[in-house]
Structures are given as structure tokens and as C-alpha cells.
Design a protein around this nucleic acid. Structure first.
Length: 210
DNA sequence: CTCCCGATAT
DNA sequence: ATATCAGGAG
């Protein structure tokens, strides 16, 4: 099987298992999603959703983040790791949104990655879930780990992995692909204890022990 | 490469 | 006790 055909088969099977996949982060607006995604770095989405449940009620617009005291915002997200840095990112980001983007969350990769605390992974999540755009493939810890297990890349640098994946995944499925892999990583192919016996890819995965 | 730095599972 | 969790900045 060629690499492209194997990728097609992987996508086909994961689509069947996760037909309605999208981010597990709760949000109503692009701003919500941007904040939630920044908070989600090295943290479970369950933890993030718990915090944002109250957060989004209190911070309804860019202005609310921009005008709040840093210490108060830090306290509001204190149960998230790296909360001090993340609060600074969000406040500075809110300022920049007001100054440069008329208070709106931009919808291109180029603009998003210029915002503090926003890298390609975060930008890709926002672009696909909030704007339906496929400008790249979000490479998070799951995509990084599983792409390597599946033999789709030999690189360890997320940006190089993204480039490898963009060559073999059809562009119209870039956003979908990363979300399917993330779901697989959350439910089945976990880092600590991968459930090879329950994996829909175990017969075409070089790392499966089945 | 290091730092950031809480919650949870094992 | 330790590894891991939708990473990014300096």
C-alpha cells in the first residue's frame, strides 16, 4: 500500500468511528475558542472546559480581558497549568486584537501566529473549528505521537511533522485529520497505555502489537 | 534547550 | 513518585 493510500484508509476508518468530530473544547465565539485553545496547552480539555464554564460568563468580549487586572485573570484560571504565562498571553492578545484587528479574532494563519501565545497548533485549531479553514494541520502531542507510531513521519519537530503530513493528507481534510487523530489519541491510542486491541487501525499500524 | 507549573492517572 | 496532558516564548 502506498503512503497516500494508507493515509486515505486511516482517514476513512477514523471518519466511521468519529463521524461528527470537532474540538472537544467548549466555545461559542472565535474569541472563546482562541482563549480555550491557549489554555489547553499541556492540559486536558476536561480541565479547560471546567474553567471556561465560568470564565466565558465573566469575560464576554475582548474588552473584558483587556481591562481586567492581570492578577484577577490569573486567579480565574488558576487551576490550569502555566496559568501565570497564559493569563499574560491572553491579556496582551486582547490588547492587540483591539489595536490591530478591531477587536475581532483574525481568520488567517499569518495573522493568528503573530498573536502572543498563539503558535501554529493553536491557530490551526481556531481556523478549522471557528472558520472552517484548512490552512495547516494542527500538530499537538497526540498528532505528534501517533503520526510517528503510524510511520507517517520520522521527524520530532512539530513544524516538520506538519509539513510531512501536509504532503500526504488531502488539503480539504487537513483540519479533519488532526481532529480524528486527537480523538483516537484521547480514547484509544493513549501515550501511557495504548489499547491496540480496540484500535480500528491495528492491522495497518506498524506499532501495533496485535 | 529551558522554563512555565496544576490536575489526574498509574 | 512520576509521567502526561489539544504548547509557546525566550
Amino acid at each position: 500500500m502506498t503512503e497516500e493510500k494508507r493515509v486515505q484508509e486511516i482517514i476513512k476508518r477514523l471518519k466511521e468511528r468519529y463521524p461528527k468530530v470537532r474540538t472537544a473544547l467548549n466555545f461559542n465565539t472565535p474569541l472563546d475558542l482562541l482563549v480555550a485553545t491557549i489554555l489547553s496547552a499541556q492540559t486536558t480539555d476536561v480541565n479547560v472546559n471546567q474553567v471556561t464554564k465560568d470564565l466565558f460568563g465573566k469575560y464576554k468580549s475582548v474588552h473584558d480581558y483587556a481591562k481586567i487586572a492581570l492578577e484577577e485573570l490569573q486567579n480565574d484560571i488558576k487551576s490550569i497549568n502555566f496559568y501565570k504565562n497564559k493569563a499574560v498571553y491572553i491579556k496582551n492578545l486582547a490588547q492587540q486584537l483591539l489595536e490591530k484587528f478591531n477587536g475581532k479574532v483574525p481568520s488567517t494563519m499569518e495573522e493568528l501566529v503573530k498573536l502572543p501565545g498563539v503558535g501554529r497548533k493553536t491557530a490551526n485549531i481556531v481556523l478549522w473549528n471557528a472558520y472552517g479553514k484548512n490552512e495547516g494541520i494542527a500538530v499537538d502531542t497526540h498528532v505528534k505521537r501517533i503520526s510517528k507510531l503510524l510511520g507517517l513521519t520520522k521527524n520530532t519537530d512539530p513544524e516538520k511533522i506538519e509539513q510531512d503530513l501536509m504532503k500526504i493528507v488531502p488539503k480539504e481534510e487537513w483540519g479533519l485529520f488532526s481532529h480524528l487523530i486527537i480523538m483516537l489519541g484521547r480514547e484509544i491510542c493513549q501515550a501511557k497505555k495504548p489499547k491496540h486491541d480496540k484500535c480500528p487501525l491495528n492491522d495497518i499500524c506498524p506499532s501495533s502489537n496485535i
